[in-house]
Design a protein around this nucleic acid. Sequence first.
DNA 1: GCCGTTTTCGGCCCGACTGTTTTCAGTCG
Length: 569
Amino acid sequence: MRNSEIAAFFNALADLLEIDGANSFRVRAYRNGARTLDSTNADLTRMVEDEDNLTELDGIGKDLAEKIITIIQTGSLPQLLEMQKKIPAGVVEMLRIPGIGPKKVGTFYRDLKIESLEQLKEAAEKGELAKLKGFGKKTEETIIEGIDTLDLTNRRFYLAEAKGYADEIRNDLLKLESVKQAEVAGSCRRRKETVGDLDVLVTASDSAEAMDALAAHALVDKVIARGDTKQRVRLKNGIELDLRVVPEESYGAALVYFTGSKEHNIVLRRRAQERDLKLNEYGLFKEEKLVAGKTEEEVYQKLDLAWVPPELRESRIEFDLAEADKIPELLELEDIKGDLHMHTTASDGKASIAGMAEAAKQQGLKYIAITDHSKRVMMANGLDGKRLLKHWEEIDRVNEETKGIEILKGIECDILEDGTLDLEDEVLKQGDWVIAVLHYGLKQPRAKIMKRLMTAITNPYVHMIGHPTGRLILKRPGADIDMDEFLKACADHGTLLEINAHFSRLDLSEVHAAAAKDLGIPIVINTDAHSPEGYNVRQYGVYQARRAGLTKADVANTRSWAQMKKLMK
DNA sequence: GCCGTTTTCGGCCCGACTGTTTTCAGTCG
């Protein structure tokens, strides 16, 4: 069973307990535990088999450890089943309505026997909810509108899309006379793979001007809430954006606060408490006196920490590093010297070899590998051995004619469902760069997937596994891989791993990339471009690498091709 | 339910905004 599936048991139980009115710290304990399971690279199924001590994981005590064992051994959790009997699934679903939380949902269920979104909407329309103590007409309207727009408001967005809107609004706010500083904060600034909503922070002499401008902005659909320092709006694409206006002396503290993550902030506040200080979005205070707040650096410094790059603020590794003043110098976009995964018109790309090479040269790259699909990918016009060898001759010819960039003969070779490679070794050995990938049969059981991956890892002519899990963010999960075993095998056989930079892949994830780094596996950041515009996703690969704590040295294609070859088998 | 250089009890992050209230609970981030 996957860690995320086990985490889902705890999150489900937390929802139910919350509606049931359980102790909120107990609820939090389940959510914290779930979060640990989601972000750990440790294979829980394996740990249970090996009888490892689960309580060594953060937020996992005796009780949760036992529940994890139960889940893995039986595939279910009695306490969850019991709660599900008590509270129907439709009740939990009501939590998805914006502005409606567990307390209200609990009241609807207990006092009015409402068990589904449909029943709730009906009750709101009949005015039955307003009869309850503490409820009124506004709440009914919130519920009706919330249910009608549920599909819109519960969406998450690719970082690429969200960041585009946030940057545009930030830049427009910065043009206002009263606005001094403006920054996009939140998960967007942390460069998370997906973004639920946007946060923009400004310092301004006049908060009304910024709020009026935002309300009138072309991207904005409607204002949801507005106070003196905070305004929430919904953009036309459905994403919601919070604007916060803070005084200049609080800008750094506010930036820390609104960048998050929530978990990172909790640790910071605890550190503040331990030092008899109080941290909020207005600054770090000793009693009533402001100790730090103008810059992020001084806030961290007063908490005995080095400044933490936003990408690392997930309460995973950053506090140990910041405390020891060992925050690594993270990878920068300019460090990347080559791109080793792309397509041309030979398979499903839009541009020629020369076209891709010219565009790469414009971006300052020193080398590229042309890696069209192999024959299994029929719909992409994948190449068989004969066509590939001809294609490689053509690449050699174009390379001869092209100055200023080296063009390498590559292939994106499928690992077939039966565990063999789509092309013969006899062909593969003639190329410069061989990527092996899973495209089909991603739903096969773990053992079968692992066998396929091992074929590729141990093949002497396969240099790298591309988009290792095959996931598509917001669309489908990746293959069920035993990551520990997979990474160890790659380390043992000198097989490199990709961070595919496309914003819908970002595969490896940051957790897996960090684990690969720990094993000394060189990471290659590639765009998988199907046209020259496709190169533009490179920055997202770099963000992902930064979130994994990767430096220039950890990434193979920051080197020259000659240097990089020394890392390859 | 978790956790511990004040350890097995008593804490557990903090503030803005809304809607419903006359002082606050619920929700959200």
